[in-house]
Design a binder for these strands. Structure first.
Lengths: 337, 337
DNA sequence: AGACCATGCACAAACGATTGCGCAAAACAG
DNA sequence: CTGTTTTGCGCAATCGTTTGTGCATGGTCT
C-alpha cells in the first residue's frame, strides 16, 4: 500500500536496487544479466502495485517524449479535423501521442506553437504550415524531425506530403469544359498558400488550353468568402457564369447560399464543382461533384515519413533525404454539373 | 554561442549561481532579494541566448505541466472538432495546452487515454465520456481535476457541463406537433449515452402529452444507422411516418439519403428535424430545422470550472463542490418541417 | 593454489529545473 | 570593538528515470 508508485518504492519493497528494477521493467533484463529470480520478484511487485513509469521523468532523462506535435490552421474545419483524426490514430498505433495546436491561419501563433513543441521536447512535428516563407520551419527542422502536410513551400528542402492540387484542379476544370460549360468562375482560398496557387494554375491551364472563358476571385477558405464573391459575381448578371468551381467545401456552401438568394438554382442554372472531401456533399441536393483528396493515405505517409526521420535521429544518422510527395486526388462525379 | 541553453549555462556565463538565475527568470527575484545588478545581467544574458525553460524538467520538479488532457469519442466528428477547437482556444488563452486523445467510442481506449494523461502529469482532464458507468472517472477525479462535457453520468459527484437534452428534444417534438405532424419517428444514437436517453425522454414526453403517435429506433450516431433505420421504417410504407426527428446530423444525412432512394422528398412528403449544429444544415435544400447546442458557452464553462478545481488543488484546498450544469439549447427554425 | 572469467547486482552521475536552508559580508547598533 | 541584523546569494537536495562503471561472489582452468 506504499503511497508512492515509483522505482524507488519497488526497489525498497523487493530489496533490489533502483537500477535493477529499472532494467527489469524496461525490458533490459538480459542485457544486464539480471537473475530469473530478481525478474520474477520485481515484475510481480510492479504488477501488484500497478506500477506505471513517470513519463515526465523518463522524458527528461532520455530526451524522448513519445509525443508528436500537430499544428493545423483550424481544428474546427472538418478537413483538418479529419486530418488530425487520421494522424492521431496512426500515432497511437505506434505508441505515440498528439500534442495539439491551432495556428488559426496565423503565422505568429504557428511559431508559438512550434516553440512550445520544442520546449516540451516533442519527438517530431507534423504541420500544415501557414507561414508565408519556409525559413522558420527549415530552422526548426534542423533540431526536430518535421513533415508538412496539405500545404508546403515552393523551393525548400522540407519534407511534405500533399495532394497534387494542380492535377486536381486541372481534372475538375477539364471535366467542366467537357460538359460544355463556357464561362467558368473559380472562387479561390488563401491566395498565397501553395495548394491554392497550384489549383489556380491547374484551373487556368486546363481552360486556356481549351480556349474557355474563366476567372478567379476570392481570398479565403471560408463560407463568407464564397458567399461574398458569388454575390458580387452574379448580382449584376445572373448569367455572368455558367459554372462555379469552389476551392473548398466551405467556399461552396457560401456560394450556394448566395445563388439561392439570387434565385439561381445550383446544378440547373449554374453548374457547381468543389474541392474537399466532406461526406455531406453527397447529401446536398443535387449531390456535389468534387475533387477528393486521399486524406487517410496522406496521413499515413506523413506519419511514416516522420518516424523514419525520428529513427535516423535516434540512431545518430544524418537526416535522410527529404520526402516530397504529391498524391493524386480523385474526381467524384455526382449531379451538380 | 553556448550550445546548451539552460540555467547552468547562463549561470556560468553571468557568474551567478543556478539558483539565482532560476529565481530571476521565474520572477521570484524580489522574494529572494536579488540585487538589481544581478537581475539586469541575468535577464540580459537570457535574452541574448534566447533562453526558454525546459518544460519537461520544470514539470518533473513542480508536478505541473501546463497541459490539459482532452478525450473525445471521435475528433473527426465535426461536433467534437468544434468542441475541441473551443476548448483548446480557451486553454491557450490561459497559457495551457492540449494533449489530445480519441476514444473512438470505446471505453477501453478511453481508460488508456486517461492513464496516459496521468502518466504525463496533466494538470486536468476534460472528457466526453463513453464508459457505461462513472466508477473509473470518479477514481481519476480524486487525483486529477476532471470535468465532463456533452455527456455525463446519472447519479454522480462528477462535474459536468452539458446541454439540456431533455429540453431540446421536448422543444423539437413540440414544434413538430404544433406544425400538425401526426406520426413521428425518432432515429436515436447510442442508446445508453445520457444525451440520447434524455432526448428520448423529452421526445416521448412531449408527444405522449399531446397524444401523438411516435416511435424510437436505431442505435448509433452514424450515417449508416440513419440510413438503415429510415429504409426499414419507410420501405414497407412510404407514408409510415410524416416526420423524422434525427438525433444527430450524421443520422439525418443517412436518413435523407434513404428517403431519396425511396423517392420520398424530405421537407415535402416527410418533415425532418435534427439535433446538432453543423453549419451545413443551412445549405441543404430545404435548410434543416434543428436543435442547436451552445458549444462556445459549454466549452468556456468547462474550462473555467476545471481551472477553479486546479487552483483549489494547487492551494491545497479540498475539492470544491461539483459543478453540474445543463445549458438550454435553442431551436433554429428553417424550412424542413 | 593462483589466475581468470562470468555472473548478478549496486553506486552514483546524469537530465534541467525549483527551493529550503544557511552562510558570508556589509551595515548598523550599543 | 563586539554583537545583531540585514542583504545578497550559493549549497545541495529533490522530482523519477536511465545507464556507465565497478565490485563482490563463485566457478573454472592450469
Amino acid at each position: 500500500m506504499g503511497n508512492k508508485n515509483n522505482l524507488a518504492a519497488i526497489s525498497e519493497r523487493t530489496g533490489y536496487s533502483v537500477s535493477t528494477v529499472s532494467r527489469v521493467l524496461s525490458g533490459k533484463a538480459e542485457k544486464y544479466r539480471i537473475s530469473a529470480e530478481a525478474i520474477a520478484k520485481v515484475t510481480e511487485e510492479a504488477h501488484r502495485c500497478n506500477y506505471r513509469p513517470n513519463l515526465v521523468a523518463q522524458s527528461l532523462r532520455t530526451r524522448q517524449s513519445q509525443t508528436v506535435g500537430l499544428v493545423v490552421p483550424g481544428i474546427d474545419n472538418p478537413f483538418f479535423a479529419t486530418l488530425a483524426s487520421v494522424i492521431n490514430a496512426q500515432l497511437v498505433q505506434h505508441g505515440y501521442h498528439t500534442l495539439l495546436a491551432d495556428s488559426r491561419e496565423n503565422p505568429e501563433e504557428e511559431i508559438q506553437a512550434m516553440e512550445m513543441f520544442q520546449d516540451r521536447n516533442v519527438d517530431g512535428i507534423i504541420a500544415v504550415p501557414v507561414a508565408p516563407t519556409p525559413e522558420y520551419h527549415e530552422r526548426v527542422s534542423q533540431d526536430i524531425p518535421l513533415v508538412l502536410i496539405d500545404r508546403y513551400f515552393d523551393k525548400t528542402s522540407l519534407s511534405y506530403v500533399c495532394t497534387d492540387n494542380y492535377a486536381g484542379a486541372y481534372m475538375a476544370a477539364k471535366y467542366l469544359a467537357d460538359k460544355g460549360y463556357k464561362r467558368i468562375l473559380a472562387i479561390q482560398g488563401v491566395p498565397a498558400s501553395m495548394p491554392n496557387r497550384e489549383r489556380v494554375r491547374g484551373f487556368q491551364d486546363a481552360l486556356h488550353e481549351r480556349g474557355i472563358e474563366n476567372q478567379v476571385r476570392g481570398d479565403a477558405f471560408s463560407v463568407e468568402n464564397g458567399r461574398r464573391e458569388a454575390l458580387a459575381a452574379f448580382s449584376g448578371n445572373p448569367k455572368a457564369y455558367d459554372a462555379i468551381f469552389a476551392f473548398s467545401s466551405t467556399i461552396l456552401l457560401g456560394a450556394i447560399s448566395a445563388l439561392r438568394r439570387l434565385g439561381i438554382t445550383e446544378g440547373k442554372d449554374v453548374g457547381v464543382i468543389s474541392y474537399d472531401n466532406n461526406g455531406f456533399l453527397d447529401f446536398m441536393n443535387p449531390a456535389v461533384t468534387r475533387v477528393e483528396q486521399p486524406l487517410q493515405e496522406a496521413g499515413e505517409i506523413a506519419v511514416s515519413t516522420l518516424f523514419s526521420f525520428m529513427e535516423a535521429r535516434r540512431a545518430g544518422l544524418p537526416h535522410p533525404a527529404p520526402v516530397q510527395q504529391l498524391i493524386r486526388p480523385t474526381l467524384v462525379i455526382r449531379e451538380s454539373c
